[in-house]
């Protein structure tokens, strides 16, 4: 009986190894090669993890949306496991994002946190998906759990474009999205290398976590050992 998510058992470890190597490379460029920013100085270097973390957090949550749609369409539980995995990794990244942002905000903005539209919508995103993970813990029936959390994921995903556009729609303390025109080319390498580093790490973690979720589901729905023996004898 294959519950999916283990067709390539070694792949996640390879992805994580590549991710670590890229992250070391990108961070070396970010810390030692790229010059300090003209006004912010050394503290701007946190951008080389903050921005890639933001991109990948939204990407993980977007993958969760894809998993939710496919699960509701096909009813395959490997997609439910992938949903759980990507939400969990997405929440981890969103939490790290808020911490990195606070560390950057204190010396530049003067405060650790403020209820600015970008920060508020990001907090809403984190808590909405933490709520979905909590919901999953409270539902025992795997079918209901899968359907409810997929539906909740589709609804909670509304916040993702709002997070993205928050800095354009409203007055905010957080700056607008930067673009290649607003960033010196010396800063490109650490930003891009770390973006791929976190992408590889994230993909590896999601694969491992989905495997774990599949195994748990298999254990959950397996008949008790004695019953299984009987079934085995009659078969």
């Amino acid at each position: 009986m294959d519950y999916g998510n283990n067709r390539f058992p070694r792949t996640p470890y390879i992805l994580i190894a590549i991710g670590v190597a890229l992250f070391l490379t990108g961070s070396y460029f970010g810390l030692f090669v790229a010059p300090p920013e003209r006004y912010m100085g050394e503290v701007q270097r946190i951008m080389y993890v903050h921005v890639p973390t933001a991109w990948n957090a939204l990407l993980a949550i977007t993958f969760a949306l894809v998993c939710a749609i496919i699960f509701l369409f096909k009813g395959e539980f490997k997609w439910d496991a992938r949903l759980e995995a990507s939400i969990e990794v997405g929440c981890l990244l969103a939490f790290l994002l808020c911490c990195q942002g606070a560390i950057w905000a204190k010396p530049t903005w003067g405060v650790w946190w403020d209820w600015d539209p970008r920060l508020t919508t990001t907090a809403v995103l984190l808590f909405a998906f933490l709520g979905i993970l909590t919901l999953r813990k409270f539902v025992d029936d795997p079918v209901k759990r899968g359907v409810w959390s997929s539906v909740a994921t589709i609804i909670a995903y509304v916040d993702v474009p709002i997070v993205y556009f928050s800095v354009r729609w409203w007055n905010s303390l957080h700056q607008l999205q930067s673009s290649p025109e607003t960033v010196s080319s010396q800063f490109y390498i650490p930003l891009r290398v770390n973006a791929f580093a976190i992408l590889f790490l994230m993909t590896g973690f999601i694969m491992l976590r989905a495997r774990l979720a599949s195994l748990r589901l298999a254990q959950e729905v397996a008949p008790p050992p004695m019953l299984a023996e009987e079934v085995g004898e009659t078969a």
């Binding site: 003209r38 951008m47 530049t108 903005w109 303390l173 700056q175 607008l176 930067s178 010196s184």
Partner: peptide, 15 residues
Amino acid sequence: SRLMVSHNNEYKAPE
């Protein structure tokens, strides 16, 4: 009593 600085989206190396 609370002063916050907001910077723009420009990140430039010193010339």
